[in-house]
């Protein structure tokens, strides 16, 4: 498997709103802590080491 960089989320505006809304009442520290948990949850769901390496590289490169 390779990292899927094509659109893959149904109803992207709804997803984005949910993501932002989930942190609306958090302060910056709480939000950053939540982000860390979210990354770990999603990384485990993906599982595939090669895909994770690609995603880390892509994020690190700035997109």
């Amino acid at each position: 498997m390779t990292l899927n960089l094509a659109p893959n989320i149904t109803d992207p505006d709804d997803f984005y709103a949910e993501l932002i809304d989930s942190q609306r009442d958090l302060d910056e520290e709480q939000a950053l802590r939540m982000n860390a948990r979210l990354i770990l949850l999603l990384a485990n769901h993906i599982g595939d080491r090669k895909v994770l390496t690609e995603a880390i590289g892509c994020a690190r490169a700035g997109g």
Partner: peptide
């Protein structure tokens, strides 16, 4: 940030 990951 690495402390956030560790705590997470």
């Amino acid at each position: 940030p690495s402390r956030y990951f560790r705590d997470a």
